[in-house]
Computed example of a mutant assay.
Amino acid sequence: MIPTIDLTPWLSGDPAAQTATAAVVDAALSEAGFLLITGHGVTREEREAVRETARSFFALPASVKQRYGVSVGGRGWLAKGAEANGYSEGTATPPDLKESWTVGADTPTGTDPEIDAFWFQPNRWPTSEAPALQRMVENYMARMRAVADEVLRLLGAALGQGPDFFTDHTRHPTYTLNINWYPGVSVMGPPEPGQFRIGPHTDFGTVTLLDRQVGRGGLQVDVPGAGWVDAPWDPDALTVNIGDLMARWTGDRWRSGRHRVLPPVPEAPEEDLMSLVYFYECDPHTLVTPVAGPVAYEPVDSSDYLRAKLEAITVSA
């Protein structure tokens, strides 16, 4: 249903192995929009180091974290109640039960002040409170961008468009890393009816690379014909799902993977999880025009589309 794909055959350069891998990817993304990948080269130790460093920040008093507080789309700390992801699909839910540290692409284009002001904001760092966080996160983002571009090359081949079809649009891309902290009820309070750690939604960009921890209140995927199912987990794997822009690019040949993160369950109310979520997009103002699939979407400007989605999930103060 949601397969685990080893990237090693794809990276080998052997044409037969690459064709076989691309075919499996095409089938998986046509069903649920999700797959797991191994052979990506990012070690468990690297991922855990980022997670543990981030924990040192999240453990700080709220009054200290608030110095870095931002709203959705900003760079810094998103407090509990800042987002309600279900609204991006029109599902009314209470605010999501999480805190996030958000960073992203910060090298301006130098030619488009409006784009630079929002999409390439300077990242903020708690250098006094968590001095190792900047180095750890910047290294991790560089690793994720390399993996994301390789995944896009694989997707280009799977779509029959050639490996550079998507990466031709990632020369100066936008991307975001959310470190999402999902603490237990003693921190977040008991969930309200219909409240999630992250409400049901699809991601907005091209591909998402997720490193997560397994838990009772964890990730679920909406699989056609099966409903909500617990996402498979492999400690060596990254979870990959495609977002709305990629689905539109393929004319819904591939599904934008709908998912949610469950609240703490009564049997484990103090479960504490953390996810590293890398959202990859494309160059600003990329015109996303369908090239395959059953739905002839109108072309969309990537920057306009993404900005509207971020505004939709923002909880007003």
Rank of each mutant, 00 (worst) to 15 (best):
A59M: 03
T250C: 00
R171L: 07
Q161M: 08
D203L: 05
S302Q: 05
R143H: 06
W10D: 04
W125Q: 06
I5G: 09
W10I: 03
L310E: 00
T102M: 02
D26F: 05
E271R: 00
P3E: 11
L177F: 07
V147R: 03
A32N: 01
S30P: 01
G110K: 11
P94G: 01
P235T: 06
F204P: 00
A27Q: 15
S12P: 03
V291C: 12
V70K: 07
G217V: 08
P163R: 14
R67F: 03
T286E: 09
P126V: 06
E114C: 02
V229L: 08
G90P: 01
R75E: 02
M136Y: 13
L262Q: 15
T170E: 09
T167R: 09
L29A: 07
P294L: 09
P173S: 13
L154W: 12
I37G: 02
A130H: 04
V291S: 09
E114S: 12
T93Q: 03
A49R: 15
E129F: 07
L245S: 13
A148N: 14
L36D: 01
D211Y: 13
P173W: 12
S63T: 15
T107S: 05
P122T: 06
N139M: 06
N85R: 12
V25G: 04
E46V: 00
F118N: 03
T206F: 12
M144D: 04
L306G: 00
A117N: 10
I313K: 10
I242T: 09
I37K: 00
P266C: 10
F120I: 06
E138M: 08
D6H: 07
V72H: 11
I179D: 12
A231S: 15
S302V: 03
L210E: 04
T91M: 01
P284N: 01
M144N: 15
T206C: 12
A268Y: 02
V229Y: 00
Y140M: 03
W254Q: 05
A292F: 05
E281I: 04
V25Y: 06
G39A: 08
G81L: 10
S275Y: 15
E281S: 14
H259K: 07
R258M: 14
G41Y: 06
A158E: 01
R171C: 04
R55Q: 11
N123V: 05
L60S: 02
L262H: 09
L155P: 07
I198Y: 01
